[in-house]
C-alpha cells in the first residue's frame, strides 16, 4: 500500500477538491434537492402561487392507475431491452472472436451504431417500420403479419425495444469482445482436451468467466433503459398508442413539461431516483456475489 499523503496546509486539500465538489453540488445535488422540494409543492392552475403539501403528490401519483401502468411498461421495456441488447451483443462478440481475417474492420463496423444519437436511431426505426411508408413494414405485411405499431400496443413495444436495444448493442459488444479477449486461450484449449464441445465450453468456461463483464453491463443497461431511452420513445411512439410505451421517464416529461403538473412530475422523478438506486444496490448486493473476479 502506498503511504497516506499528508498535506501540511489545512486548506489546500479542500481547495483542490473544491472544483469537483462545486460541479457535483451545482449540477447534481442542487437539482436533486429542487426536485425533492418541488415534489412536495402544489401549483395553482395559473402558476401564480404554490403551496407546500407534504406527501400529497406522492399519494396521488402512487394511486394513479396510469402511473402503475407506466411502472409495468417500464419493467417490461427495461428487462426486454437489457436482455435483447446483451444477448445479441454477446452472440456477435463470440462470433467476432472467431473471425480471423479483417477482424478489426468487422469490430469497427459493429461499433458504429453507438455513435448514432437516440432520436436519430428512433427516426431510423420509425421510417423502417412506419405502417404507411416503412420498407420493412411493407415486407412484414407481405409476410402476412398485420403490422401496425401505431394502433397495436404490443407491436409498438417491440419496436421501441428493438430500437433501444439496437443502439446499446454496440456498447455491449465492445465490452464483451474485451471480456472474451481477457480469457486465456489455454483455458479453452484445456477444456477442449477435457472433452468439452464448443457449446459446453461456452457455458461452463467462457460464460462464467465473462460474469464480471456481464454484471457490469447489466447495471449499465438497466440504467440506460430507464433513463437514456427517452429520445427513442419520443421519436418512435411518443408513449403511445394509448399509454402502451409510456415509461416512467416519458411520463415524467409528459406530466411535467406537456401537462405542466409540476408537483406530480417531480414526485415521479423522485420515485424514479429511488427505484434506480434500489435496483443498483440489489444488483451489487446479490448478483455480484455470484461473480468471479479474476
Amino acid at each position: 500500500m502506498t503511504p497516506r499523503v499528508v498535506f501540511p496546509n489545512k486548506i489546500l486539500p479542500y481547495l483542490l477538491v473544491a472544483p469537483q465538489l462545486a460541479i457535483t453540488a451545482i449540477f447534481f445535488y442542487w437539482p436533486a434537492s429542487q426536485a425533492l422540494y418541488q415534489s412536495m409543492l402544489r401549483e395553482d392552475p395559473f402558476g401564480l402561487k404554490s403551496s407546500f403539501v407534504w406527501f400529497a403528490n406522492f399519494r396521488k401519483v402512487l394511486a394513479d392507475p396510469n402511473y402503475l401502468n407506466s411502472l409495468k411498461v417500464t419493467a417490461i421495456f427495461s428487462v426486454s431491452t437489457a436482455a435483447v441488447a446483451m444477448s445479441v451483443a454477446l452472440l456477435l462478440a463470440v462470433m467476432a472472436d472467431k473471425v480471423v481475417r479483417s477482424r478489426g474492420l468487422y469490430r469497427t463496423l459493429l461499433i458504429w451504431p453507438y455513435a448514432v444519437a437516440p432520436a436519430i436511431a428512433g427516426m431510423l426505426w420509425l421510417f423502417l417500420f412506419n405502417p404507411s411508408i416503412g420498407s420493412l413494414a411493407y415486407l412484414l405485411r407481405a409476410a402476412g403479419i398485420a403490422w401496425d405499431p401505431l394502433l397495436n400496443g404490443t407491436q409498438a413495444m417491440v419496436l421501441v425495444v428493438a430500437a433501444a436495444a439496437w443502439k446499446q448493442i454496440s456498447y455491449n459488444f465492445l465490452f464483451f469482445v474485451a471480456g472474451l479477449q481477457a480469457i486465456p486461450k489455454t483455458l479453452i484449449e484445456a477444456a477442449a482436451i477435457d472433452g468439452a464441445g464448443e457449446t459446453k465450453r461456452f457455458w461452463t468456461i467462457v460464460f462464467p468467466l465473462l460474469a464480471p463483464t456481464t454484471f457490469f453491463l447489466l447495471v449499465v443497461n438497466t440504467v440506460y433503459a430507464f433513463f437514456d431511452t427517452f429520445g427513442i420513445i419520443h421519436a418512435v411512439t411518443g408513449g403511445g398508442p394509448g399509454k402502451a410505451t409510456e415509461t416512467l421517464v416519458y411520463k415524467v416529461y409528459n406530466d411535467g413539461f406537456v401537462n405542466l403538473i409540476l408537483g406530480d412530475s417531480a414526485a415521479q422523478s423522485v420515485i424514479l431516483m429511488v427505484i434506480v438506486i434500489a435496483l443498483t444496490a440489489v444488483q451489487f448486493r446479490y448478483v455480484e456475489r455470484k461473480v468471479h473476479y479474476g
Binding site: 483455458l187 484449449e189 484445456a190 468471479h292
Partner: peptide, 20 residues
C-alpha cells in the same frame, strides 16, 4: 481427430486451471 477424442491429457505452462 479433435483433441477430445485423442485420449490425451495436457499440463500447460500456466497450468490453465479453471479459475471459477
Amino acid at each position: 481427430i479433435g483433441p477430445a477424442e485423442r485420449d490425451i491429457a495436457m499440463v500447460f505452462q500456466n497450468y490453465a486451471l479453471y479459475p471459477h
